[in-house]
């Protein structure tokens, strides 16, 4: 659609700008201020320059948390995206079954994140949870509270359970937008199931998949509540991700300066990834 040049449109955007700026810019400025000072209380503070940044950038624990974070984000993307596409392809398209399947699939998305953690905390326990008990039946000494590998697997499983529906629903809506004529043409050509997927469905899914990857990457990059409830970041630090190390530092140890410097580095990484994705999406829309 061609748009009209009109700078008065700014008045329509102004309320949004003000309300988001209040919650975004003032805190961001404060974080920047904290990051260059050693703060004991608002009246006792010393300017330390870039010392915290140096400390944060060279902090081994944060490197580990960052690596863990990337491994986690890529693992869940590698599972959730293909699985989500598969589910979307299997979802019924017509009648009562379609509405019902849609509602049921969407349920995990509407559960508060701490309750998601609680559900898996219960479900994974060998004494009172079905999953834990089944693992025990299979002869695996499954215990997410003491075995780092098990904790890691439980967090991944929980995230896949929680968020695959989002990818599935995105893809489902993408598939709904394909005109029936395309399938008819494929049937006349006797195209194989794979060919239909590869040349008709997948191209239509590109747009929604980019949104899916963007949302899943970003949200998994700031995951906090679910592992916090499930494992508290443990055992040891095996499931401590970036947000959690940040909260530990800022609120647990009240190290305002280093926590603020950490926040800024974290934020810059997010900003970079976000910009790359956004530019890609805009680029693809322009090509169409």
């Amino acid at each position: 659609m061609t748009k009209v040049e009109n700078n008065k449109a700014w008045w329509l955007v102004l309320p949004v700008f003000l309300i988001v700026a209040f919650s975004a810019i003032i805190p961001l400025m404060t974080v920047v201020n904290y990051s260059v000072q050693d703060i004991f209380d608002p009246y006792t503070r010393y300017f330390v320059g870039t010392e915290w940044f140096k400390q944060v950038m060279l902090d081994e624990r944060l490197h580990d948390a960052l690596i863990r974070q990337f491994i986690f984000s890529f693992t869940i993307l590698a599972i959730e995206i293909p699985l989500g596409i598969m589910v979307a392809l299997m979802m019924p398209t017509k009648g009562k079954g379609a509405s019902l399947a849609l509602i049921l699939v969407a349920i995990p998305l509407l559960i508060p994140w701490n309750v998601v953690g609680t559900i898996w905390q219960i479900f994974g326990r060998a004494d009172i949870g079905l999953f834990g008990a089944m693992m025990a039946e299979l002869g695996i000494n499954y215990n997410y509270a003491s075995e780092p590998m098990h904790a890691w697997l439980t967090v991944v499983l929980m995230d896949v359970w929680h968020w695959t529906p989002l990818v599935a629903l995105l893809c489902y809506s993408g598939l709904r937008a394909i005109p029936e004529v395309y399938y008819q043409a494929a049937r006349i050509d006797k195209a194989s199931r794979w060919a239909v997927f590869r040349y008709i469905q997948l191209p239509k899914l590109t747009n929604v998949l980019i949104i899916g990857v963007l949302l899943r990457f970003m949200d998994s990059f700031m995951i906090y509540t679910e592992p916090f409830v499930l494992t508290g970041g443990g055992p040891g630090t095996s499931t401590t991700f970036l947000s959690q190390s940040l909260v530990q530092q800022a609120i647990g140890q009240f190290d305002l300066g280093p926590a603020a410097a950490f926040s800024l580095v974290y934020f810059l990484i997010i900003l970079l990834v976000c910009w790359v994705f956004y530019t890609t999406i805009m680029h693809m829309q322009k090509d169409k």
Binding site: I26, M29, T30, V32, N33, Y34, V36, Q37, I39, P42, Y43, R45, F47
Partner: peptide, 15 residues
């Protein structure tokens, strides 16, 4: 504004 802990360099930066 006190809680924002302004310093001269950061104020200059934002300005």
């Amino acid at each position: 504004m006190v809680w924002m802990s302004w310093t001269l360099p950061t104020a200059a930066f934002f300005a």
